[in-house]
């Protein structure tokens, strides 16, 4: 068949398909799409084989490309199965990255413990880690005397703090993950310094005996937040390690594989951090609840989070 009659015969069909693609996608026309796709693949193959005009081949090529993308939108994971994700995918991803989690945990916690102990025993130590204004601000925040004078925090302030925590804390976790691309060094630095700051603040406040204001505040949301930061560190380290030691893959393939592997962790981390921000703004800040209740709930949350996060092992063999 010559090109002219080919175009004459199929041109209207192509036009129709092009028009239908321009419209927003209908609900479930995947069957029609598949038919169009197969038809157009055949036309493209014919056009290429018979060396038809470059413009015609390009048009068909673009049409097949558009159909192909449309066709595969249906398998897209935007239809996330929440149940399977929470039950299996997220804990399993954590289990598979357990060594990275362990490393991230150590890098995060060890400086924290050391800095905590140091600031606890040495009055001046905190100033070599944090600026004086920062220290003063933290002290003011958790000063029990100030607390007693103040009333319950206003609701609108709670919402402000919710936004504030979402913006800052989740961004820290994301940067911690992204730092993995710098062969993991960025991740290690973020983990190390965050551990250091948190540890030194805790140590310092404990030394000042602000125990009853500080710990009840952090214990609740800390379960989600600290764990999520460790997980995002693990995800970042996975990327970094994939670059350092690609094994039998090329560096690029290894990196890409790592990128795909950590995706479930990223979803989980985002959700954990949103929950943490919610708790931090609306629960942790509440002063009307007794300290005992806060400790109890905090402990419960910790147990639940840890049990859940490390429940991935049994899915491994499947």
């Amino acid at each position: 068949m010559k090109q002219h009659s080919f175009v004459q015969q199929h041109g209207p069909t192509w036009q129709r398909i092009e028009d239908s693609l321009a419209k927003p996608a209908q609900a479930d026309n995947s069957k029609v799409l598949a038919e169009h796709y197969l038809l157009l693949c055949q036309h493209l193959a014919i056009a290429k084989e018979r060396l038809y005009d470059a413009a015609l081949v390009e048009r068909l090529n673009n049409l097949v490309l558009a159909l192909y993308r449309e066709l595969y939108r249906y398998r897209s994971e935007t239809r996330l199965n929440f149940y399977a994700f929470f039950k299996r995918d997220f804990p399993l991803a954590i289990y598979r990255h357990r060594y990275y989690v362990l490393l991230a945990f150590l890098v995060f916690v060890m400086p924290g413990l050391i800095a905590g102990a140091w600031t606890y025993f040495d009055e001046e130590a905190v100033y070599s880690i944090l600026d004086a204004p920062e220290v003063r601000q933290v002290e003011r925040m958790y000063d029990p005397d100030a607390r007693k004078l103040g009333r319950e925090r206003e609701a609108d302030t709670d919402i402000f703090m919710f936004g504030f925590y979402i913006k800052n804390n989740i961004s820290v976790a994301f940067r911690c993950f992204a730092g993995g691309m710098l062969v993991g060094i960025g991740t290690l630095l973020v983990l190390f310094f965050n551990g250091l700051f948190i540890g030194s603040i805790a140590g310092h406040l404990t030394r000042l005996e602000y125990v009853d204001t500080f710990y009840p505040f952090v214990v609740g949301h800390g379960s989600f937040e600290l764990t999520a930061i460790v997980f995002s560190g693990a995800a970042g380290l996975r990327l970094g390690f994939a670059i350092i030691n690609p094994g039998q893959f090329s560096r690029l393939d290894s990196l890409r594989q790592a990128g795909r592997d950590v995706v479930p962790m990223l979803y989980g981390i985002v959700l954990m951090l949103v929950i943490a921000a919610f708790l931090e703004a609306f629960w942790s800040s509440s002063t009307s609840l007794s300290i005992e209740i806060k400790y109890a709930v905090g402990a419960l949350l910790w147990v639940l989070v840890l049990l859940y996060s490390f429940s991935g092992r049994r899915y491994e063999s499947r």
């Binding site: 929440f82 149940y83 609701a155 609108d156 919402i159 919710f162 609306f282």
Partner: peptide, 29 residues
């Protein structure tokens, strides 16, 4: 403060509602 309080309540209710929905949706499993 009035509006904010209202919104705070709405947020908390939305959150609880989401949890309840998920619980009901996946009660079987």
């Amino acid at each position: 403060s009035g509006t904010a309080f209202l919104l705070k309540i709405v947020l908390v209710i939305l959150f609880l509602g989401l949890v309840t929905y998920l619980l009901i949706r996946y009660r079987g499993p």
